[in-house]
Computed example of a mutant assay.
Amino acid sequence: MAQNVTLLFDTSDVDYRRGVVTAESVWRAIVLYGANSATYKFAFGATLLEIAATGRDRVALEELAPRYADLLCQALQRNPRQCIATSSKFLDACRAFNAGDLDRDTLHRRTVQLGFTNVIDAFPQIGGAPAPVRYYEDRRKNSPTPGLLLRDELLRLARSVHAQVLDAETAARWRLVETAWATGVSGAVLGPSLVYDHAKQELLLPTRQRRKSVTGVVPALNGYQDGRCAYCDRLMAQGEASGPVVEHVLPWKLVTRPFWTGPDVDAVWNLVLSCTPCNQAKQDRAPHESWMPWLEQRNNDLIDSRHPLRETLITQTGATATTRRENLKNAYRTATELLPSTWTPPKRPHEGQCTPGKTPPISNAPTTSVRA
């Protein structure tokens, strides 16, 4: 009987980015993807969600300014660099407030004058084109009280179950961006040294004195998976007891094997989020090789999108897509030689939610990869 031979990492049928257009997915695309020249969009997005949660559909710039400025003042206290430009009159005003040289009322006036000049136009853009979902209408011109008209798409999103998760994802992306700038990520300083803390589920940046927490892994990765399990594609419940779970694709158990010579499995390239049922079913096994293109494309996608972890992933996986594929193939071969039993993830539905009481149909029977 002929064996079914799988070509290692054939990506022809991979659907990593499904292209589902919802208010939630487009918001994530705006916040999580694209170049970052300043962190204004993170503060602006967080402010919009907070105000929209009150149900108001009109907001003046004077009402946006206090929270928007507060978030940026707090960010400057964490990291003094919040943009790639050498100077910013608005950020200078925030710095002056932090130093006690500017009172709060003056800060708010300068925020109205300077803080929204570009961010209102730039925020609803993806790749230089208008986003497919509009969250507000600009009412700054020809109005006695310049501001925004908040659309139903934003009002519903801000009052949905997704709002808190989106806020955490925005904060995580913000921490990654500012840490990258502060440490000179373009020189790969962040890349080789970023480590994962199992107990805290955080990405840490070692310094001479201690390991500095950069951000939590769950909010840092959740948005790029659209809140779905990496294996079964179901929406993950957000409670502490039900997930998401930080999952090692190639099992962490490999580090206990004396003959493991592959890359560090405790690094970002090998970390994904899964629902609790898939995590429990997978155990200390690698996924079947038919799933591995998902990981390959996830890593390529983050690198190509200029993600703050770009240098980290390049350092860990390789400078080109070809090199990354070969390195991943070699790591997978070695892993499945040391731990031959693999796990086949369930089919990838596009509806439903993983909760402890609703386990997706998962095959627990050990399988073994067959390669040419």
Rank of each mutant, 00 (worst) to 15 (best):
N118I: 01
G128Q: 09
T367D: 06
D264A: 02
N270P: 00
A372Q: 08
H248C: 08
G352Q: 15
I51T: 04
A93S: 06
P146F: 10
H248P: 06
L235H: 14
D138V: 06
R228V: 14
H108I: 03
V370H: 09
V265I: 03
V59K: 01
P244R: 11
C83R: 10
A230S: 14
A35W: 05
A23M: 03
P206T: 12
R285A: 06
P258L: 04
P144G: 13
K282S: 05
R325T: 15
G239Q: 13
D92R: 02
E62S: 03
V161I: 12
Q74D: 07
A99W: 01
L166I: 11
E202S: 12
F9I: 15
C73Q: 00
R134F: 06
T170S: 08
T183L: 05
G191H: 04
A171H: 13
L338S: 12
Q113E: 09
A220Y: 03
G128A: 10
S305G: 04
T315V: 14
V20L: 10
R28S: 08
L309Q: 08
W343Q: 07
L273V: 05
L155S: 04
A188T: 04
E62I: 01
R325K: 15
Y224T: 07
F9D: 13
R78F: 02
H108P: 00
R151A: 03
T170E: 04
T276H: 08
V177T: 13
D121A: 10
K212C: 06
Y68L: 00
Q280W: 08
A99K: 00
D167S: 14
L155V: 07
V272C: 01
R325L: 15
A241R: 12
Q238D: 14
G357C: 12
E153S: 14
M236K: 11
V26N: 02
R109N: 05
P219A: 12
L176Y: 06
I84P: 00
G127Q: 07
E63P: 00
T6R: 14
L32W: 06
L49Q: 02
L313T: 10
R159T: 13
N364Y: 15
L166D: 05
A2C: 04
L61Y: 04
N330M: 15
V5R: 14
E337P: 08
A96V: 01
T47G: 02
R67Q: 03
E351Q: 15
L338Y: 12
S305C: 05
I120T: 10
A180S: 09
P287C: 11
F44Y: 07
Q74K: 00
N222I: 13
T320E: 13
A158V: 01
